[in-house]
Design a protein around this nucleic acid. Structure first.
Length: 569
RNA sequence: CGGGAUGUGGCUCAGUCUGGUAGAGCACGUCGUUCGGGACGACGGGGUCGGAGGUUCAAAUCCUCUCAUCCCGACCA
């Protein structure tokens, strides 16, 4: 590719709209341009980087026995009604009607379409298993798109779906995808972790996320310092504590005028937040639920949602709390509460704690579960903290930020049952197919790779994802020898299958160096004065600045050597 | 959706508080010098000040509405 003929509109200054590194640099380096919120055009280099990711994903998916196909982006609402997701999916699903008044939507994911296809085409256990995937543009009308390619509304995703005869076979499919994903992210040159995850709206019973470690990540991971336990913090189980065996003390009501917040109540009553229990009210679909957690803990809404098996939970407003319980916020407690009560397992192990009295301006102390109130259920409902022990081995946990680039789910038979995707088993019986689904955020990987690989001068792509492997600078356009050498090197590298960008622009050397750094191309070859003076060209690595001077005829072989060493198989 | 902020040549911003008829740097065009880490000089082109309405002799500036974008929280590849 010739720079002079390409469209690589680099920016000298940081665009005002971008905060995080990948977003800022993708714009500055002329990889992407925004069309509207969360929707981007991929310019030649941006697209080239996406293609590199796609290439690796394709190879490993094919190697794992999956077949590529391509499904439509526009989908009929009818299909979504079959699984009930037309109602459940919420406003993220962009819906519209066509000229015939047919309800349609833009595909945010393709379980319905693939299941429809498979139920029509697959009859027998002899046709299974199948694993089908596509790489395609998805549309999700995100509430808040942000950070450029990290969370767009329109994005490129690889989604795969497996169909098996039973749980055992489905487990094998899942494991094959899990292994393929590890391979894919390793080959991309990313520092990542597979973690246990919540299965979210897609549904299903078991799942792992693949997280690229980066400070700008939107997820928090807990990682055990000793064993190999790692989980998304919203999913991470909290180990149940030892039950307190202290003798039960007498229940006592205390007047606490105007004391509503945990720290205020604690100060007033001269106790620590861990001796207090707070009562949080949530709106779970249409029902109000009270949840008890220790004063210094947070309710983990995902856990609550899963425990209740509801679509949505959100914290009730002060007014809703009052309307539902007749008690103003700040004085709520479990005793004689009028709505459904759930108790975090940690609270269940406490004795003689303080909580609201369900009466304005009063709290009670020495409250004990079993004696003073009975909950509907006890469960693990709180957010894990860094000071919690590993739920598996008990060792200390560490917390890290991560970007989710892949997600694998065991779906079970939910979709196949809802959509009647059945096959005949060896006894001639109809059975629902056992499904799995597996996503990779292709465009997000590009952003994640930049988050992990950049410095103050620009990006520094890992070789496998770099849109171009070499940038070749001609610093003497008017010098015959320099230009001839640069041009013949350009041809030679192309013949050897190297992706090379020839900077043949009529620009000053300084601009070319600055742009080369910004673009993040791993290898840079400079043909300039050193050639006329000493007969050498310079080869420099973007990441560490390692520089070598070589005779022009040695360069191509050296580059091939460096590329081969940097590619991961 | 709640909270915060911003919209002024292609880009980054000043000007807004205190109304007086739009400015800098970069980019762009021409010419000259320069040419291995974002050169310099001269000349030049380019802006309905996000949009609509209002107040005023006069609005980028004040008021109302509206649109868009970005950042912080609940969703997800």
């Amino acid at each position: 590719m010739r720079y002079s003929q390409s469209l690589i509109p680099t920016l000298k200054e940081n665009p005002a709209e971008a905060e995080v590194a990948s977003h800022r640099l993708l714009l500055r380096a002329g990889y992407i341009r925004k069309l509207t919120a969360g929707i981007y055009t991929y310019l030649p280099l941006g697209l080239a980087a996406v293609r590199k990711v796609e290439h690796i994903v394709r190879e490993e998916m094919n190697r794992a026995g999956a077949q590529e196909l391509l499904m439509p982006m526009v989908q009929p609402a009818d299909l979504w009604h079959e699984t009930g997701r037309y109602e459940k999916y919420g406003p993220e699903l962009l819906r519209f009607v066509d000229r015939h008044d047919r309800e349609s939507c833009l595909g945010p994911t393709h379980e319905e379409v693939i299941t429809d296809l498979v139920r029509r085409e697959i009859r027998s256990y002899r046709d299974l298993p199948k694993n089908l995937y596509q790489i395609q543009t998805k549309f999700r009308d995100e509430i808040r798109p942000r950070f450029g390619l990290m969370r767009g509304r329109e994005f490129i995703m690889k989604d795969a779906y497996s169909f098996d005869v039973d749980d055992v076979q489905a487990g094998e499919s899942y494991q094959r995808m899990y292994d393929a994903y590890k391979k894919i992210f390793t080959r991309c040159g990313l520092d990542f972790r597979p973690v246990e995850a919540d299965s979210g709206t897609i549904g299903g019973s078991f799942s792992h996320e693949f997280m690229v470690l980066a400070d700008t990540g939107e997820d928090t991971l807990v990682i055990c310092s000793s064993c190999d336990y790692a989980a998304n913090s919203e999913k991470a189980e909290v180990k149940a504590p030892q039950a307190d065996e202290s003798p039960l003390l007498e229940l006592t009501k205390v007047e606490t005028p105007g004391k509503r917040k945990v720290p205020v109540v604690c100060e007033f009553m001269e106790i620590e937040p861990h001796e207090l229990v707070k009562t949080m009210v949530y709106k779970a679909d249409e029902e109000y639920i009270a949840v008890l957690v220790r004063g210094d803990r947070e309710v983990q809404e995902v856990k609550l949602k899963n425990h209740l098996g509801v679509v949505d939970v959100e914290m009730a407003t002060d007014k809703e709390v009052y309307d539902a319980t007749g008690v103003p916020t700040g004085y709520l407690g479990p005793i004689d509460i009028t709505i459904k009560l759930l108790v975090d397992q940690e609270v269940a192990a406490m004795r003689n704690f303080v909580c609201g009295a369900n009466e304005k301006n009063f709290h009670v102390k020495n409250v004990n579960m079993g004696r003073d109130f009975e909950p509907a259920a006890v469960a693990d409902l709180r957010q894990i903290t860094a000071s919690d022990p590993c739920p598996v081995c008990g060792a200390a946990l560490g917390m890290k930020e991560g970007i989710e680039v892949g997600h694998v789910f065991k779906l079970g038979t939910g979709y196949s049952t809802a959509m009647n995707a059945v096959f005949k088993d060896s006894n001639g019986q109809d059975k629902p197919m056992v499904m799995g689904c597996y996503g990779i955020g292709v465009s997000r990987i590009v952003a994640a790779a930049i988050e992990q690989n950049h410095d103050e001068n620009g990006m520094a792509f890992p070789m496998p994802l770099a849109p171009m492997q070499v940038i070749l600078l001609n610093l003497g356009l008017k010098d015959e020898k320099i230009t001839k050498t640069a041009e013949s090197l350009y041809l030679e590298l192309q013949e050897k299958g190297v992706d090379v960008l020839l900077d043949d622009r009529d620009e000053r050397p300084g601009s070319k160096f600055k742009d080369a750094d910004l673009l993040g191309i791993p290898l840079r070859v400079t043909v300039g004065k050193r050639l006329t003076k000493d007969g050498v060209v310079e080869l420099r690595q973007r990441k560490d600045g390692a520089t070598e001077e070589l005779a022009p005829e040695m360069v191509a072989a050296r580059i091939v050597e460096l590329i081969n060493a940097a590619m991961i198989d």
